[in-house]
């Protein structure tokens, strides 16, 4: 598939900063997919977005968005993109509708067309009651919906969504997620930056983990979680003897070393068959467990894994 975003060896060192914000940043996002750029504060997420949206120039490297080079064809990039997030605010004094009309007209829509489009988006994003009110009075969730609407006045082919749910309550967060999913259904390519693994898991086809200004790990959420480990069956017993006995019984079902720690046993397993097999063996011969849990690895584990490596280095 064609790449909607392509970045190679991008480097950016802010004047006066100790380390470069981006240092050999590579990324390829297929058209029509959702890529989550995941990283801690300071990992370089926002710098990457600002470079790809032409708000910032890179020191070195190459980058193209929607087939347009960010350096030589900035206008082409700007015509193709939408930007949502802390980097692209709307006017707080004007109402939501007035903002959308302004952005429509700045994108070249005639007055009537801009008004019609604004009304359509106001309704679609559930802002009818607040359309005439100053945006400064909006709640966080309403503001974010207006941000999204403002970036869709002229439908973009690539949408950059920079930390869209930071500071939102869970309901508003789900609302934003639903909106992003609807966009993807329309065929928009989305680059999402987030600190929340749950968000990447929910929305992204492809996750790129950023650390120290470069992508250190990428793949589908399933691929990444399989990197940090297998599914584990965790069982707790009343006594350490029971746990030791269960540890011995687990041998045939484990795909790695069985971990016995006091009264707790953790058995790495390959599939669901191994889980039921181990449980059946426990029921037939072993001591009665106090608690049984099956734990799958999450992106959280990957995140911790990646960042632990960072701290060790």
């Amino acid at each position: 598939m064609d790449a909607a975003i392509e970045a190679g060896a991008v480097r950016k060192h802010y004047r006066g900063a100790r380390r470069p914000a981006l240092d050999g940043f590579d990324l390829r996002v297929a058209a029509g997919s959702v890529c989550a750029l995941l990283g801690r504060n300071g990992a370089g997420k926002t710098t990457a977005v600002r470079i790809l949206t032409t708000l910032l120039t890179m020191d070195d490297g190459t980058a193209a968005v929607a087939g347009c080079d960010v350096r030589s064809d900035g206008d082409g990039v700007r015509r193709a993109i939408g930007l949502v997030g802390q980097n692209a605010a709307v006017d707080e004094v004007l109402g939501g509708r007035a903002n959308l009309v302004l952005f429509g007209r700045l994108r070249g829509l005639a007055k009537a067309a801009a008004r019609a489009r604004a009304d359509e988006l106001i309704t679609r994003f559930g802002l009818d009651d607040a359309a005439g009110r100053a945006v400064g009075t909006y709640s966080g969730g309403m503001r974010r919906r207006l941000d999204l609407a403002a970036s869709l006045v002229v439908p973009p082919s690539v949408l950059f969504v920079d930390e869209p749910t930071t500071g939102l309550d869970p309901d508003a967060r789900r609302e934003v997620w639903a909106t992003v999913r609807r966009l993807v259904d329309d065929g928009v390519t989305v680059l999402l930056t987030t600190q929340y693994l749950e968000e990447a898991d929910e929305l992204a086809d492809h996750v790129a983990m950023l650390r120290d200004g470069r992508v250190v790990l990428e793949g589908s959420p399933a691929e990444l979680t399989s990197l940090v480990g297998e599914t584990r069956v965790e069982v707790r017993f009343a006594t350490a003897d029971d746990a030791a006995a269960a540890g011995r019984a687990a041998g045939p079902y484990a795909v790695g070393p069985v971990d016995v720690d006091g009264v707790a046993v953790a058995v790495p397993v390959a599939d669901a068959g191994a889980v039921t097999g181990f449980c059946a063996a426990l029921a037939a011969t072993g001591p009665a467990p106090l608690d049984v849990a099956v734990r799958r690895p999450t992106l959280d584990d990957v995140f911790v894994h990646v960042n632990t490596v960072e701290e060790v280095r």
Partner: peptide, 8 residues
């Protein structure tokens, strides 16, 4: 920055 991200 919003304005700068538009094709103005």
């Amino acid at each position: 920055d919003r304005f700068r991200s538009l094709p103005l």
